[in-house]
Design a binder for these strands. Structure first.
Lengths: 350, 350
DNA sequence: CTGAAAGCGCTTACAG
DNA sequence: CTGAAAGCGCTTACAG
């Protein structure tokens, strides 16, 4: 049995190897100009005569020159890297955002530096230190627990874009999804289906989105002339297990309900399991809707009706806004409006 | 309107602020020694007298000195960063590994630099270039599509640890999970339950694990004296949708089956949906088992029986092995043996 | 428009 | 055991 992995013949190229060894000085020598000029051309820092420019371009191509980011950073120029403060690198929700950021940054030669704050302000502060020590050109923060003031302060030193907040400050761009409207849509969907006894599993109270989503739920109920029954609002904290537990409490309590709106998909999945354990069928016995539309929502059983939170676009927009800030432009990024996706976990009350 | 880029007020505080501004030189001055000595103490590069050491330690603490990784890297020392070549930053499977790596590296002050190869050898090569340009101290590769030869070559320049392969080379450590045994276990579980007509959804043929898992399935069947019915082995490529399609083909074909072993959980989820659509109940009508035990497996309906692939430990072990390689030691990392987790998607044939 | 020179903050031979 | 000095590969005032 031959191993497929070994048969790769080692192609040798005429092109100078060892990418890392070619320096800007070598390029300068080959092009017959000074290192300063090469630097300027590479950075578009100054107007340079056409012939020198082409000579340099050619030398760069011939030698396969790749500027050393470390040297660049040390010398005070751009490091071409953007710090990304996420909460957990393996979050099923933020994962899509990380990818959006990575893709968008990649197309202009920037690379992201991911660090995890684990929903902890102290750790997040350390993330910032790490990132600044590495001389990132800017920092993107996905929600986080840092105070707005702290963010504004950092923005004095380098561009920052933050998601999940509304914040206006110089050199800073805040990108927020319309959580209120999304939650209103989800609740309205259930209302339209004829449900009146709609329970809501809230997210972590310290999370900014939580209040907004609760507010959306309340607004829809109120608009329908329905009272908010306190027993129908149960607290979770965005994890599957907290959703499961919330439903257990709901069932064990005296309140009756025919539908549940979970503040995120993960809790909806947990709720689904609790319902399953109690032999309550979705959507036959109770309708269930979530929020976020994570990748696995389509494959849950039954496929989950949920509000689409364009997390990938969120990442892209954040990256684009950062690039604009870096270019001295005013960010124009805007997030798509919430859309409710009807799948199979909700149905008309009969 | 003031331009934000210019207004950089430099705040001055009593406490040495701006962590980034304290340099090794300042520490040296405060401690009354030369920069070289400070550097040596910080790096444990040489034996230093006790009094100088404590003087330096104190100065470091007082000033809150944090070495600049860029300068470190440029000067030829360690950058304290490890490149991690993953396939997709948002993979539900590798996510756990990334986290394991991050956690393990963090405790010794290293930070990971994640880059995505997207299952594409060319992109992976570029990942390596990026990482080397940034002077990472070592590179961890999660499977990938690079040839073994390419990996061995890179290991000549810096320590490499790779998962998902068996490979022996200097300055390189390969960490592989026992896919064969895992698959054998999964199939045996179904066999023990009385199933004979067991279908297998394979993974992407280009993926090294695929053959091993297929081999495990075959071995278990053979050991039970059962023939392998070709029609029962359908190809997928590790995505939910490919699992769904595979089951559609299975159902539309003439073969009968009472159980399915999907080569990973994602395909099992897809299979589950296809079954659901055809009104086939799990586990009543068909038993379903997966492979990997991703985080969401516990919350799928019904909770998925699957082989536990300790992906978090995989990440940790990879990080530990890297640290050992960096210390000039021989890696001792070993992965836990596969365990089959019985949940509710499989049950005895009656 | 374009050089020469200094400097970014460290590490590491080289000499004591 | 410990300095002084050079150098890592760039960028950026400073002078033409």
């Amino acid at each position: 049995m031959t191993t497929k992995t070994e048969g790769r013949t080692r192609r040798r190229s005429a092109v100078p190897q060892g990418e890392g060894k070619v320096t800007l000085e070598m390029v300068a020598a080959h092009a017959g100009v000074s290192p300063s000029t090469v630097s300027r051309i590479l950075n578009g820092t100054a107007v340079v005569s056409e012939d020198k420019r082409s000579a340099v371009d050619e030398a760069v191509a011939r030698l396969g020159f790749v500027p050393n980011p470390m040297a660049r950073g040390l010398a005070g120029g751009r490091t071409m890297s953007i710090g990304v403060v996420t909460q957990a690198i393996d979050s099923p929700f933020y994962g899509g955002a990380l990818r959006g950021i990575e893709d968008e940054l990649a197309r202009v030669g920037y690379s992201p530096l991911f660090v995890s704050g684990h929903w902890n302000a102290a750790q997040e502060s350390r993330c910032f230190e790490t990132l600044r020590a590495r001389r990132v050109d800017g920092i993107i923060v996905l929600t986080g627990r840092l105070s707005d003031a702290a963010l504004v302060r950092h923005a004095q030193d380098l561009p920052v874009v933050v998601t999940g907040r509304n914040l206006v400050a110089p050199n800073l761009c805040a990108l927020n999804f319309d959580n209120f409207e999304g939650a209103r849509l989800a609740t309205q969907h259930l209302l339209d289906l004829g449900h009146r006894d709609i329970a809501h599993i809230t997210g972590d109270a310290r999370h900014p989105d939580t209040q907004e989503r609760l507010r959306g739920y309340r607004a829809a109920m109120a608009a329908a002339g329905l009272p908010i029954r306190p027993g129908l609002v149960v607290a979770g904290h965005y994890t599957e297990d907290s959703g499961r537990l919330a439903v257990e409490r709901l069932i064990d309590g005296r309140e009756t309900f025919t539908a549940i709106f979970a503040a995120n998909d993960q809790m909806a999945f947990g709720a689904r399991l609790a319902l399953h354990r109690r032999q309550m069928r979705v959507p036959d016995d109770v309708s269930l809707v979530g929020f976020d539309d994570v990748a696995s929502a389509v494959y849950s059983i039954p496929p989950l009706s949920t509000v689409h939170h364009p997390v990938n676009e969120l990442g892209q927009s954040a990256a684009i806004a950062m690039l604009q800030l870096l270019a001295g432009e005013v960010p124009t990024a805007a997030l798509p409006a919430p859309r409710f996706i009807v799948r199979e976990s909700s149905r008309a009350l009969r």
